[in-house]
C-alpha cells in the first residue's frame, strides 16, 4: 500500500492513483455469493441472452465496490471514506479491463475534519465511463 496521503498534499484537479480490474467469470460468481445478488444475467449466458443482452455482464454493485477499493487504497490507513457511489450507465463484460479513476473536485475543513470531494468512475476499453459517481473522504492533516 502507498504512503499516507495528507489533506495538505491534495489539490483540486488532482487525479488519484488508478485501480485496474478485469473480472473473470469466476470473480462474478464469488461476488454473487458475497453480495447475495444471484440474478442470472451475471453468470448464466443463456439466461442473459434471453433478456436481450449479448452475454453476461458485470454486476453494477461490484463496480461500485471497486470504487470503494480505489478510495480505500488512496485514503488508508488514516483516512476514511464517508460517502461514495455511482450510477450504472453502461454495462461491462467479463475479461475486459475496467479502469477505476478519480479526480479531486473540492477540499475544505469543516467541524475540525479535513474533507475531500471527488468525481470517481470506472472506464471501459473504449474509454467510456460506465459508472460515473462521486465520493467524499476525510484525510488526516499534518496540522
Amino acid at each position: 500500500m502507498a504512503e499516507q496521503v495528507y489533506f495538505e498534499d491534495v489539490n483540486e484537479g488532482d487525479s488519484i492513483p488508478e485501480l485496474r480490474k478485469n473480472c473473470s467469470t469466476q470473480q462474478l460468481v464469488v461476488w454473487a455469493a458475497a453480495s447475495g445478488d444471484f440474478y442470472q444475467i451475471h453468470y448464466d449466458q443463456e439466461f442473459a441472452q434471453k433478456t436481450g443482452l449479448d452475454t453476461i455482464i458485470v454486476h453494477g454493485a461490484l463496480k461500485n465496490a471497486f470504487l470503494g477499493q480505489l478510495l480505500h487504497d488512496w485514503v488508508a490507513p488514516a483516512g476514511a471514506i464517508t460517502e461514495f457511489g455511482c450510477q450504472y450507465r453502461g454495462m461491462d463484460r467479463p475479461n475486459q479491463d475496467i479502469v477505476c479513476g478519480g479526480v479531486v473536485t473540492k477540499k475544505y475543513a469543516q467541524d475540525g475534519q479535513h474533507i475531500v470531494e471527488l468525481d470517481v468512475w470506472t472506464e471501459n476499453p473504449s474509454g467510456q465511463r460506465t459508472t460515473p459517481g462521486t465520493a467524499k473522504v476525510v484525510l488526516p492533516s499534518r496540522g
Binding site: M1, K21, Q27, V30, W31, A33, A34, S35, A61, L62, N64, A65, F66, G68, Q69, L71, H72, D73, A76, P77, I81, F84
Partner: peptide
C-alpha cells in the same frame, strides 16, 4: 476477496486491531 481488496484489515483480526478497529473491518459498501 470478491472485490480484490489487499488491505489486511478486511481479512485479519490482528491487523485490524493494530489499526485501532474492534475487529475485522467490513469493506466499503
Amino acid at each position: 476477496r470478491a472485490v480484490g481488496h489487499t488491505d489486511l484489515i478486511f481479512y485479519d483480526e490482528a491487523a485490524a486491531r493494530e489499526r485501532g478497529y474492534r475487529g475485522i473491518v467490513a469493506p466499503p459498501g
